[in-house]
Write a protein that binds this DNA or RNA. Structure first.
Lengths: 142, 142
DNA sequence: CATGCTCATTAGCTAGGCTAAGTATCGTGA
DNA sequence: TCACGATACTTAGCCTAGCTAATGAGCATG
């Protein structure tokens, strides 16, 4: 096994991430949800209802940024805002039925390009990517 | 070894990428180069002189986007634009001495947070990330 | 040498990200 | 109980990054 120093790996990994994410973004179907919108909607699906703050923390953005993203989703009727039962300051965000439908459709189209690419890899390579994804999520949480 | 389908992996990987890259972006030192600017400068360092079109292709953005990024770098004296010797339409981009200096300083600061995180991982985990990075770069090129 | 192609840029748009400031509500200590 | 600090969200204002469409300049070829 080749040994990598943390420094040289940091450089390579950063390059890979930026190129790769740009490539994924390009595979976006026109007129549908953006990267960030889909990501927020996904979090709402997976975690059920969340406050803006919780969603912002999960998505690793600042609250005002999340206000904007949620605003777009709300404009399209994909997310609903309801008042918190006991705390008047807070708001509860949840995906609507239409949000869930749009999510499912978009998710599939969105993953299509990537899934095709991944399908061309060997099982070992997919395994490497899967384990790397877990590590990256863990590091991102730190 | 666990088997991952291309579909489920696509989903996980996309989530990891977006979270991870947001986290990296947050570790940006104030008043220095942005993610995209540093990436472009890096390509210029590694490949020597390039035309805007070549640089845009490398960075996976459209030419007008690269015009903007290079413009910022040029304003700060980090990149020089010289006319192509034989083809009057083209332009040659190259990092200046100051560009190389700023690059080196920034690169180090930029990688610091990530390097610290990576240093906490096991050698096996670093190896996984390194191999994943290579695969991602290859896929991004496709 | 006219016409069509290529390269780069400009113009104009949208999304996404930030900080600072504002507003409403909560909770608590005097 | 009520004044005041803390908290939650939004608004305002800014910048970067990305796109497409259109423009202009230069090249190359029939």
């Amino acid at each position: 096994m080749t040994e990598y120093t943390a420094e040289s790996l940091a450089k390579t990994l950063r390059e890979a991430i930026i190129r790769f994410s740009r490539r994924i973004r390009q595979a976006r179907p026109v007129g549908e949800l953006t990267f960030s919108q889909l990501s927020a909607l996904t979090s709402l699906q997976l975690h059920g209802a969340l406050t803006p703050r919780e969603l912002a923390d999960l998505e690793r953005v600042q609250p005002p940024t999340m206000t904007k993203i949620v605003g777009k989703l709300e404009d399209r009727g994909l997310v609903a805002r309801t008042p918190h039962p006991t705390d008047g300051r807070q708001v509860i965000l949840a995906a609507t039925d239409e949000g869930r439908a749009v999510y499912a459709r978009n998710e599939q189209v969105r993953n299509e390009w990537l899934a095709v690419q991944l399908d061309r890899l060997t099982p070992e390579e997919r395994d490497t990517l899967a384990r790397a994804a877990e590590i990256m999520l863990r590091v991102a949480r730190a």
